[in-house]
Design a protein around this nucleic acid. Sequence first.
DNA 1: GTCTATAATCTGATAGAC
DNA 2: GTCTATCAGATTATAGAC
Lengths: 188, 188
Amino acid sequence: MSGKENSRERLIKTASRLFQLQGYHATGLNQITKESGAPKGSLYYHFPDGKEQLAIESVQLTTAFVSKQIEEGLNKSTDPIEAIQLFIKDMAERFERESCTVGIPIAAVALETSLISEPLRASCQSAYQKFQSAFTEKLIQSGYEEKHAMELGIVINSMIEGAFLISFTMGKSEPLLLVAKQIPSLLK
Amino acid sequence: MSGKENSRERLIKTASRLFQLQGYHATGLNQITKESGAPKGSLYYHFPDGKEQLAIESVQLTTAFVSKQIEEGLNKSTDPIEAIQLFIKDMAERFERESCTVGIPIAAVALETSLISEPLRASCQSAYQKFQSAFTEKLIQSGYEEKHAMELGIVINSMIEGAFLISFTMGKSEPLLLVAKQIPSLLK
DNA sequence: GTCTATAATCTGATAGAC
DNA sequence: GTCTATCAGATTATAGAC
């Protein structure tokens, strides 16, 4: 309704990037306001519940963005094996290209806050559920039996998230590529 | 050489537990000294390089502990498929039993520090390499071709680490159990 | 080796003028 | 909606007595 929601948008986008890259506790409110260009005073106007609320909305933004990426990636082939492999390889390439300017979606926030903030944990949980269901949907559309597709969706999501973590630590995308390579064994 | 290295030991053990559970930035030096019972003044005597050094040695302790657990677990069966499945199920049971009093080995520290501390990142990297090679060794002993065994070691490690992360966030061990279930497809 | 006190800096959060 | 100033508490780290 109001004029420009610009400041709020910028705050969430900046927070989203920094939380993924540095984690929850390492990212200060000062840094977020400073890098977003938004005035610090306006943070608590837009997010009365402070850092926790900002993090929840950041996770939600990331979730929407990544889910869309997964769905678009999976649409590049009708064959689920090929589609999932293509998606993972895309992630690996992006990882190599942007080096570490992107971080791993959700993971750091999930690890750091699951024990100390129930609403934040719940946000991360529904993020992962959304990722999983994208894979599961693809498999169901390809004729996989429903329960099997659900189980595979969870496993594929775990594999990718784990490979991201190891790739990030190792500084190379090899684990992601090897996971992609094993997808046929898993799905056949 | 000196009398009791007790205080140093306690500091590392406490730090190790807290870093896994809460992550690097959320764990303060005050909390570590307080919970370890060691005097705060002695921290910088034993660890002149401060928090970073303490974290590196904590990661090393965790690495040794977890590696031993993996190796012992894998020795419970000569069949690699069964052995790996047993190990993952053990982890899942322990996860359920101790709920969240244990955290995920290495992961939080790896995510939080890989970009800000090269020595700490390197410690986490060699941790993961050690985990991987335990799986790889088991596969080679069972007759898998060396390169294939190495690739599978990396993928299995990624799967487990990812499933841990998702299980932790979800609050239930289902992802770990589903990963165990898919091991036969992967290894056959 | 231990302990206390404290420095210097950062954090999240608030109050109030504009 | 914006901006400044500031609070109380946390952080890592150091200095120096014991």
